[in-house]
Design a protein around this nucleic acid. Structure first.
Length: 960
RNA sequence: GCCCGGGUGGCGGAAUUGGUAGACGCGCUGGACUCAAAAUCCAGUGUCCCUUAAAGACGUGCGGGUUCGAUUCCCGCCCCGGGUACCA
């Protein structure tokens, strides 16, 4: 009987479903292990071969851990709310609930064919009210909490109210949007609305008028990680900075903990580094500068307080609140013109012209607190409102941006640091954080690091500033002016938001006639009828962003049907947190920051067991497309204009022609198609590469008939073949429908089976590397599985013997088990596949059909190729699923060989392989080397000068 | 610009703490089986020198260094990929 993967795979997929093989419950007799995949957003295009890469890897690991005796939680669900799902719905003119439902069904069908061990009873969907009830619930907790810097955690807001009642804002060390100052009596004298406004300044989820990324084409605001190069990450529409009243999450309060927490995580260094940069910690000082002839002061942030004697001017961000305070009457017109110009510029324009220097003088002067000199205060867009205090002290001698500004506007440049190399700061700034202070009065002669400490101490002593750590990480804008998202559990009374009663959750998304967004920013929920509380108070019209639902889904999988809590205590105690998380590195600054923040908050309020949700994380690489090209002949009859012809030339010929000098190319082609009227009057030729559907190309050979049938414009195509074949060119690109290089796993499964697909995707290369999908090697894997199958069969019948295995067979078995076991543990799946292949080759050569060898191998192979393993397991006479088996142990004693079994080579040195760990005495080894017959001939008449022993490896004998 | 990764045959990629570089697969070449094809199996396959072989020389982006020994460690470059960017 041949290896019939179709029959085998459908049989076992049905079996697993009918027997709930992958159902998992709390089992205190076994250690738990939680393997999580980043749940997919179900797009309309379905899965391509790149998507399952991570799922296959996690499935192999989950199955392996199960065989190793762990109780493994391995769930799957759908990230179904959010912008992409809604954009897709808009494009196809259907309701997002319909398109999302259809897409999920398609995803599920495709995933089922690959044979995953998910416990589907635990599936979650972020758009399901039973699920988003807990997203809304978490929002209310955020709304009712503030961040206490002393306790380094989120605390209930009522504690803050108590503090206000007893001592006002005095002595507070909490995270707030702005610094507020009031006494207990002032607090008590405030109206309800005024008090609510004060509290809003401290809530973890808060409303504020803030500069946001507004994307008119998407009709919504976006968080920083959703914008890149001034364009929306989704769809690529322009984004402008706009002041709007929006919900935000106080993520910045956790910046320090998010940074510190990285230390203990088993994540790749590169990913941690991305997060470190994104959080962007920098140490320095906040310093006040007085304004000449005014009681106003400007507070600035600097990382270089040591350069304070080199400050020759100040710069404010255009949006700074100081601009209006410091602009003098005679400069008012100029400043207004500049602010007009600056606010009209889009993010993209600003970023594209970073080199361009612009600015305007306010007319005011500040006083340098150390030199007492008056220095002009300018406004320029190179200073950002959102970072530090939105104002800087400019040190053109030692900051390249300040330098460019000073040069442009003719401001003085002073050198205060000497690098000992005679650097001229008039020419270029000296930015390096090293050297010795000069022209700096009391600081002269100090190294930079010492001067920084000195100035910070001095500033604090004088009460004109303090040491400060600044983070680049901003609060996350949390509201979207879109329809397809979680409604906020919030209503408005007297213009202030109040949370709904928790018992009223979930607040379900209303069905509305048109869900399209507006360019002006009015949320679509404004069109919903009856969108208010029973008392008639209006409900919030914004919805939550995509990352709201994806920030705690891993907790929900532990206890997905609990309607009393996000996750029940028992489930939380047992499943704890995610042991292994697999997903793409593109979520480094989005989901993976938000989820950590969200989980830290839940931990602070006692709802998550650990502050960090994902102990170990692996980023699987992207599978790129391997595009195929055909080459259409273009001809020119006047040497200028090109005409397309219906002739498509094989890439092999295109290469021959293109290697020739220009004037010979035409003649070469003419020789290939003698007398062809296409070339009549032609003076020049060229080739146009055209993407062709990779599904009609096999091993770079085009199916020419399929190409003619592919699109009407190619129906009359002619081909210039090489040896009867049309060879295509190829290139590596993103896998995309528009490049015709998408490979659907269904087609691969149809041709080779799910087991082959699984093994091949692992064999393709290291899990974490990006690599192109190339079907050329899949035959090799398919051959291996057939060869493996044949080990169990003779003359078409299942047949294994119960004979006692010999030494060689045992060596092969244990060598393979050891390699595979260690490789899976290290996620080195691409090297465990060859171990199986070598094993199959060796056993085939040994004609091994022994149960004692084959049975353990089937178990070891089961995580990779579960269907064929189940089938062979059953044929070996087992009633239960192979998932109930135990991963076989390997034994070192079958791998041990004699010391001198392999003397390998000699060239001035004799080398021996030493498969045994060596603790032996070098003298003893030297004796054995001398007496061994294999080495005797090399050593004849020579003196041993040195014996170098590398345990487990090699002995080198250096001869005299 | 700054911060991370990474450069190994025709291709994808192997190579514990420095220890026989190129595992395994693809491709290619030759052979067996067959009327033939498919499938399967066997052998060969880094480069150079050479009719062939033996033997040798050269080989892990480039140039140096440490070492009995370097793909691996150190110094200086080049190239590619990713992240980030007026963040003071």
């Amino acid at each position: 009987m041949e290896y019939n993967f179709k029959e085998i795979e459908s049989k076992w997929q049905r079996y697993w479903q009918e027997n709930e093989t992958y159902r998992v419950e709390i089992d205190r007799d076994k250690p738990k292990y939680y393997v999580l995949d980043m749940f997919p957003y179900p797009s309309g295009a379905g899965l391509h071969v790149g998507h399952p890469l991570g799922y296959i890897a996690s499935d192999i690991y989950a199955r392996y851990k199960t065989l190793k005796g762990f109780n493994v939680l391995h769930p799957m669900g759908y990230d179904a709310y959010g912008l992409p799902a809604e954009q897709y719905a808009i494009r196809t003119g259907q309701h997002p609930a319909i398109t999302t439902g259809n897409n999920i069904r398609r995803y599920r069908e495709q995933m089922d064919k690959i044979g995953f061990s998910f416990d589907w009873r635990r599936e979650v969907r972020t758009c399901d009210p039973a699920y988003y009830k807990w997203t809304q619930w978490t929002f209310i907790q955020l709304f009712n909490s503030y961040y206490c810097r002393d306790a380094r955690q989120a605390r209930p807001l009522r504690e803050l109210v108590q503090a206000f009642e007893t001592r006002g804002s005095r002595g507070l060390n909490v995270a707030g949007t702005t610094d507020l100052s009031f006494s207990a009596n002032e607090w008590k004298a405030k109206t309800e609305k005024e008090q609510q406004e004060v509290l809003m300044n401290y809530r973890m989820a808060y409303l504020s008028d803030t500069l946001v990324n507004w994307c008119p084409r998407l009709g919504t605001v976006l968080a920083n990680d959703e914008v890149r190069d001034g364009l929306s990450v989704r769809e690529g529409y322009p984004v402008v900075q706009k002041k709007m009243r929006q919900w935000s999450l106080r993520v910045s309060a956790y910046a320090g903990r998010l940074l510190d927490g990285l230390e203990e995580l088993e994540w790749s260094e590169s990913l941690k580094e991305i997060q470190r940069n994104w959080i962007g910690r920098s140490g320095g000082a906040d310093i006040f500068f007085e304004i000449q002839g005014s009681t106003e002061r400007i507070e600035i942030f600097t990382t270089r307080p040591d350069t304070i004697f080199g400050v020759t001017f100040m710069v404010l961000a255009p949006e700074s609140r100081y601009t209006s305070l410091l602009t003098t009457a005679e400069r008012a017109d100029a400043v207004r013109d500049y602010l007009d110009y600056a606010t009209k510029r889009t993010e993209r324009e600003r970023q594209a012209e970073v080199k361009r220097v612009t600015g305007v003088f306010t007319g005011s002067y500040a006083i340098n607190p150390f030199t007492r000199e008056a220095i002009p205060v300018w406004i320029s867009e190179y200073v950002l409102a959102g970072y530090g205090t939105g104002a800087i002290m400019a040190v053109p001698g030692h900051d390249s941006r300040d330098h460019a500004f000073a040069r442009y506007f003719g401001l003085p440049i002073v050198q205060v640091i000497d690098d000992g190399a005679g650097h001229d700061v008039q020419e270029a700034s000296l930015d390096a954080k090293s050297g010795t202070l000069v022209h700096s009065d009391i600081l002269d002669g100090m190294p930079v690091a010492e001067a920084i400490r000195f100035v910070v101490d001095e500033v604090e002593r004088r009460g004109i500033g303090k040491g400060k750590i600044n983070y680049r990480l901003r609060d996350a804008i949390f509201s979207r002016q879109r329809y397809w998202g979680e409604p906020f559990p919030v209503y408005y009374k007297d213009g202030m938001p109040y949370p709904l009663d928790e018992a009223a959750l979930p607040l379900e998304l209303p069905d509305i006639d048109t869900f399209l967004p507006t360019e002006t920013g009015e949320p679509p929920l404004g069109r919903a009828k009856g969108w208010h509380t029973a008392e008639g108070y209006p409900l919030e019209l914004n919805t939550m962003p995509g990352f709201a639902g994806s920030s705690a889904y891993y907790l929900r999988y532990m206890d997905p049907h609990n309607d009393k809590a996000l996750v029940g205590r028992e489930a939380l105690d047992y499943w704890d947190s995610v042991d292994l998380y697999l997903g793409g590195a593109e979520h480094a600054t989005g989901h993976l920051i938000y989820a950590r923040f969200w989980n830290m908050f839940l931990h602070d309020i006692g709802k998550a067991k650990r502050p960090e949700p994902f102990r170990k994380l692996i980023n699987q690489g992207m599978i790129q497309g391997r595009s195929s090209f055909v080459y259409r002949l273009l001809v020119s009859r006047d040497g200028a204009a090109w005409d397309a012809t219906p002739l498509y030339v094989s890439y092999t010929i295109v290469q021959q022609i293109e290697r020739c000098p220009g004037e010979e190319q035409l003649a070469l082609l003419a020789a290939k198609i003698p007398g062809d009227p296409l070339l009549t009057g032609v003076v020049a030729i060229s080739f146009q590469p055209i993407h062709t559907d990779v599904n009609i190309v096999k091993n770079d050979i085009l199916d020419t008939e399929a190409f003619r049938a592919w699109m009407p414009e190619y129906a009359s195509a002619r081909f210039l073949l090489e040896e009867g074949k049309y060879t295509c060119g190829h290139g590596v690109e993103k896998m995309s429908k528009s490049l015709f290089n998408v490979v659907n796993p269904d087609i691969v499964i149809d041709e080779y089976g799910a087991d082959t697909l699984r093994v091949y995707e692992m064999f393709l290369g290291p899990l974490e590397a990006s690599k192109p999908w190339d079907t050329q090697g899949i035959d090799g894997v398919y051959k291996f599985l057939r060869k493996f199958w044949r080990l169990f069969h003779a003359n078409g019948n299942f047949r294994v013997s119960d004979e006692v295995p010999g030494r060689a067979e045992l060596e092969t078995l244990h060598k393979t088990l050891k390699k595979v076991d260690q490789d899976i543990e290290n996620f080195s799946f691409n090297t465990s596949v060859p171990a199986f292949m070598i094993c199959a080759n060796e056993l085939t050569a040994l004609k091994c059909d022994k149960r004692a060898i084959l049975e353990p191998l089937v178990i070891a192979l089961a995580p990779f190729a579960p269907h064929v393993a189940e089938e062979l397991w059953q044929r070996l006479g087992h009633d239960e699923s192979i998932t109930r088996a135990s991963f076989p142990a390997w034994e070192e004693r079958y791998l041990v060989r004699d010391l001198f079994e392999y003397p390998v080579s000699f060239n001035g040195k004799v080398r021996f392989k030493l498969p045994v760990p060596l603790t032996a005495d070098p003298v003893l080894i030297e004796e054995r080397i001398r007496s061994a017959p294999e080495s005797a001939k090399w050593l004849a008449g020579k003196e041993i000068r040195k014996v170098i022993i590398v345990p487990n490896k090699i002995i080198n004998v250096v001869l005299g």
